[in-house]
Design a protein around this nucleic acid. Structure first.
Lengths: 163, 163
DNA sequence: ATGTATTAGATGACATGTAAATTAAGTGGA
DNA sequence: TCCACTTAATTTACATGTCATCTAATACAT
């Protein structure tokens, strides 16, 4: 049996302890590389990956969202959102608005400037998606999505194993 | 056609622009969640994911490695390695040694203390791998690894598209 | 040998991710 | 009414990841 491609890539001398471990490391490595690649694209427009993500969520929603809603959709811890919104606001890509009904809540909304920036990025982003994953067939892409969704089933919130 | 699971998870209102995009976002999201989960496990032992990674690489190699070698295997940028090694050295889990042949090179080696810590973590880490991915069949895990490796083919260094 | 290019690392500035603690506001019950 | 509890967001402290820049050491060509 020849060594796996991943094993060669990271120059690992021993084979993987399990298929589970190999799949997980493959996943983390592929994701890192994709993240890097998109990060470089976004930087050309003055954004980081997280900032782009927030703008996409806000555009997709079409209206203002509470900070916590945004954090939830990004799998991120709450404290990180504050600074993220701060920087987007400084660039005038989003606006904060205190909610009147519940003054604890801060609504965040994308601005015209933010929408314009996203529009400029749409084509390059779309092109990059195809460039990076287009060599997989539609059937392979669907199967990949299916397997990833299945993988996430054990990761749902609340499924944490207690020590 | 019903909306995809990912589309529901992130409450996206429009369907994905392409199968490429959906697969990529699935990948990034799954990876984030796995990363979070392992991060929490490692933290119980006083390590971050990156620190654990360095120790695993050094144990796998069995001997000292130059800093750049470590960075390369981790997909990471060079500057990050310095601080990473700094903190591991402070915890006495690794040691730095200047190379005599080429005094620019710094070799990093795992210590006894580092090896002992890794040993304690082996079983919990292995258990977590199975816990998180064990609900996929062996065939599915292999197919997942195959698709991820194929996905990385477009990400090889030097394949960057020029602007 | 000498000046240029290259290579290995380190440093500084900044954005991010994490946990723990804090502030402010809303809810409920004695 | 008043206190305990919860919730939304922020703040603080620290590890990380990124880039640009710097230093030291080596390699190479003339």
């Amino acid at each position: 049996m020849s060594a796996s491609r991943l094993q060669e890539e990271i120059k690992k001398k021993e084979p993987f302890a399990s298929a589970e471990q190999e799949a997980t490391l493959n996943l983390l490595r592929t994701s890192d590389q994709l993240h890097n690649r998109f990060g470089r694209l976004f930087r050309k427009y003055g954004l980081t990956s997280s900032q782009y993500n927030v703008l996409r969520i806000l555009r997709g929603e079409g209206k203002a969202l509470p900070s916590l809603e945004i954090a939830e959709r990004m799998i991120q811890v709450v404290p990180a959102i504050t600074g993220l919104i701060d920087r987007l606001e400084k660039q005038e890509l989003v606006e904060r608005r205190r909610c009147n009904d519940d003054r604890r809540v801060v609504f965040v909304e994308i601005t015209e400037k933010g929408m314009t920036l996203l529009s400029e990025m749409d084509q390059p982003v779309s092109d990059t998606h195809v460039q990076l994953m287009g060599h997989l067939s539609k059937a392979e892409l669907q199967e990949l999505s299916r397997l990833l969704e299945k993988a996430r089933m054990s990761l749902a919130p609340g499924k944490e194993k207690e020590a």
